[in-house]
Design a protein around this nucleic acid. Structure first.
Lengths: 231, 231
DNA sequence: CGAAATGTTGACTATATTCAAGGCAAGTGG
DNA sequence: CCACTTGCCTTGAATATAGTCAACATTTCG
């Protein structure tokens, strides 16, 4: 199997059904065994973990096109939950889809590895934020990153903003901050004219300032260190 | 290609050379393009990101058997650096090894996806710690997790402790804490008799107490929520 | 229209950071 | 062999950042 049409046919053959869900629905429960593999056709969702007192950490946000449940298929028991953020449409794959994909098409198998690695780099970025950025920096980084991801899926590239279905509680849970502190910091940034959220759409008004606050590393324009890598 | 001997032969064929490094050497630089794919034969390493002021966030620790550089192969330009923690021996693969692995053996390709997903779940756990646990909880969680990972690679299962090459600076950088606060909190836990580090070996003295502090979720003994998952 | 969810703000408290100083152990060069 | 450096660990005091509590405003939705 080598050409593109065949790959689409392969994915179609592994598809079991479509599923529509409302906002705030639990797609995969923490600790669940035998979770399904999905892909998000429309709508947003997020992966999360909770502590025993109910506090929640959002691991990353899932946008249309993202896979859901690759890790669950891998470790038998889900280490994290997945919840829809908006109403959403999902493509549900058969249980052994991940294996069949690898078996029948090395290209598609490679793509899955690629997607998995890309998702990990999103979590990496989140960890950098939560570990080392101030509250204002974390919010700036999150807004920019989500804007970029969402804008990349639109034809207009985000000139009229992008959909933004997160509540401040979601933002707090993603950034490891309290709701109150999140609110105060966001208001400050908003009053400073750095961004605007209106009708559940995010507009970036001063990207440069936000990038500065977030201290986002631009690999093209700077080298941090003069030491040479090994290989 | 389907049996185990063939898979070993495949990996061998993709191996380009072996490499020995000392402690604290940079294996992959942030922003580096065309980084190699390695596997860690002996020794420990870590992945990290830095901010422009030099502060560093360790993303996760790499132990023998772990892959290094899967993500780098995927995104052209490395989003994080990798540094050795101890002296280490590496197996260096040829540039297109990841693709050849998928192409020649679906089983091995699937395994790579599995490893990648497992590494992501480590970062997830780190993010939960940094986002939602207190300093004592973070340290407890880190010690337990590293102990388990290291003990699993020893014949004695860790009854006489496990190697522990981290300095307090590494721990601070992994947990998003300052060095000073890390030290004070670790001393408190050590004085309370929860663990001991001696001759660069970690001994867990009171695993139950550490688990409680870390609020580690045990999926076998508890269900957090009564709501049923969707599928 | 009323209820529930979300957003906003101030006052107070807790946790963690920064600054500063010193100790200990290992390695180095005279 | 001994001063001397260097890296890592340790501690206290002052400060800053973020969390908690409490109250109220605003929006959304049935």
């Amino acid at each position: 199997m080598s050409n593109n049409a065949d790959e689409i046919a392969l994915v179609q053959s592994l598809k079991r059904r479509e599923l529509s869900v409302g906002p705030g629905e639990l797609l995969i429960q923490e600790g669940q065994s035998e979770a399904s593999l999905f892909t998000l056709l429309t709508g947003w969702a997020y992966r999360f973990k909770t502590l025993s007192d109910g506090r929640c950490q959002i691991l990353n946000f899932l946008l249309p096109g993202d896979f859901i449940g690759v890790q669950q298929k891998m470790v038998a028991v889900a280490a994290h939950g997945v919840m829809s953020l908006t109403s959403a449409r999902l493509c549900v794959f058969q249980r052994d889809a991940l294996w069949e994909l690898h078996r029948q098409s090395p290209t598609m198998g490679f793509n899955v590895t690629w997607l998995s690695a890309r998702e990990e780099s999103l979590v990496d970025e989140g960890l950098l934020s939560v570990g080392r950025r101030s509250a204002a920096g974390r919010i700036s980084a999150l807004l920019i990153l989500l804007f970029k991801r969402a804008a990349g899926r639109q034809l207009d590239g985000g000139v009229d903003g992008v959909p933004f279905p997160l509540t401040q509680q979601h933002i707090a849970d993603a950034l490891g901050l309290s709701l109150v502190h999140t609110n105060k910091t966001m208001r400050k940034l908003e009053r400073a004219g750095l961004y605007r959220i209106e009708h559940a759409r995010l507009h970036i008004l001063d990207a440069a300032k936000l990038m500065t606050l977030a201290d986002i590393y631009d690999p093209i324009n700077s080298r941090m260190s003069t030491s040479r890598p090994l290989v």
